[in-house]
Design a protein around this nucleic acid. Structure first.
Lengths: 186, 186
DNA sequence: ATATACATGTAACAAGTTACATGATTTA
DNA sequence: TAAATCATGTAACTTGTTACATGTATAT
C-alpha cells in the first residue's frame, strides 16, 4: 500500500527525525541515495504515512521564521520499512534516454554523434568525482558494522563510482570505434 | 513537443515499417533497447505522431485474421528523430529501487540482507547471459559502419553486458563484506 | 475446451513534474 | 533592493500501468 516514495521517506526518518522541508532537501540530489522527489510530492505522502501510523509529527520552532513539523518514524513504521527493505524489488524496466538516443544515432553525422558521446562521458566524469569525494569522506570513519547506515552508504557509493567508471570507459571505447571506422573530418 | 516514447517509436520505424502491434511487441522487453511501453500508450502516441506528420499509415492485410495499420516514418519524422538523437538528454534522476531498499538494509537481519543481495546478483547474472547471447548473434555479421543500426546495437549490448558484469562483481564483494563483519549463522 | 497469437482501441488510476500561492528572515 | 533560505501546502498537467472491451484463427 505504501509507495516507493513512502519507503524513501521512512528510510530517511529511520536515520533521524526531520521536517518535510529537510526531507525535500535530502531528496533533491540523489548522491549516495537513489531516489528523488519534490516537496509537492513529499507533503501529501507524509500525511498518508501519518494516516497509516508509520510516522508521527510534533510542531517545533524551526531555524527559520515559522514553526515546523518535525516527523519521527514509529515502531510500526520501522517494522514496515524493514519488511519492505528485505523484499526483492519487482523487476524494473530499464529506461535510459541516452541509450534511446544512441539507438537512432546511425542516422546522424558522425561528428554530431562524437559530440553527444563526449558530453555524456564528461557528465559521468563529474558524477564519478562526486562519488569519489563522498567515498573519501565516508572512509574516514574506519570500519563499520552492517547494522549501521554507514555500512550500506559506503557500499552504494562504491557501486555508484564503479558504475560511472565503467560508463566512462565504454564512452572512450565507443569514441575510438568511431574514429577507427569514420576518421574525424579535421 | 514529441515525447521520449514518440522518439522510441520513430527509432523503431526508422529501421523498418511496423504495425502498432509489432511496435508494442518490440517495446515489451528492452534487451538491446532501453525503453518499454505497453500498447495502451503506443496506439494514442502513433495517432499524435501522425497528426504531426512524422509517420503515415496504410491499411494492409496482416498475418492475423484482421487488417492492420502499417506505419512508416516520413522524411519529416526522420529529420526530427535525427535532431533529437544528437541532442544531449536533460540530466535524469537515478531511480533504483534496489539501492533504495539497500539504504534501509542496516535495519534488517544480516541473513535477510544476504538473501536480498544474492537474489539481485542472480537476476543480473541472467541479464548478462541474455546480453552475451545477443552479443554473440550480432558479432556474426563482421565489421559494421556507424551509419548502420548494427554499429550502435553492438555498442549498447556491450554497455549492457559491462554493466551487468560490474553489478555482479559488486554484489559478490558486498556478500563477502557481510561475511567478514557478520559471519553467517550456519 | 483452452490458451495463445493476432489486432486495436478506451478508461481508470498511480506517480511524478511544474506552476501557483503565501510570507518572514537573512545575506549579498 | 534583490535573491536565497526557511516552510508548507494545492492545482494542473504529463507519463506510465492495469483493467476493460471486442473478436478471429490456430495450436495444444
Amino acid at each position: 500500500m505504501t509507495s516507493a516514495l513512502g519507503y524513501a521517506l521512512l528510510g530517511l526518518l529511520a536515520r533521524r527525525p526531520r521536517t518535510g522541508y529537510q526531507l525535500a532537501q535530502a531528496m533533491r540530489r540523489p548522491i549516495g541515495y537513489f531516489w528523488t522527489a519534490s516537496h509537492s510530492q513529499i507533503y501529501p505522502e507524509l500525511a498518508r504515512l501519518e494516516g497509516d501510523a508509520l510516522v508521527r509529527h510534533r510542531v517545533v520552532a524551526g531555524p527559520g521564521p515559522r514553526d515546523t513539523k518535525r516527523y519521527t518514524i514509529t515502531a510500526a513504521g520501522k517494522r514496515a520499512l524493514t519488511a519492505w527493505a528485505t523484499t526483492p524489488a519487482p523487476p524494473e524496466a530499464t529506461r535510459d534516454e541516452f541509450l534511446l538516443r544512441l539507438y537512432s544515432l546511425w542516422l546522424a553525422d558522425p561528428d554530431d554523434a562524437r559530440t553527444l558521446i563526449a558530453v555524456e562521458r564528461d557528465r559521468h566524469r563529474a558524477a564519478l568525482a562526486d562519488y569519489e569525494r563522498l567515498g573519501a569522506e565516508l572512509a574516514e570513519a574506519g570500519p563499520v558494522h552492517p547494522d549501521t547506515p554507514a555500512f550500506y552508504d559506503r557500499a552504494s557509493v562504491r557501486r555508484g563510482a564503479a558504475f560511472e567508471q565503467h560508463v566512462i570507459t565504454w564512452c572512450d571505447w565507443l569514441l575510438e570505434e568511431l574514429d577507427r571506422s569514420e576518421p574525424t573530418t579535421d
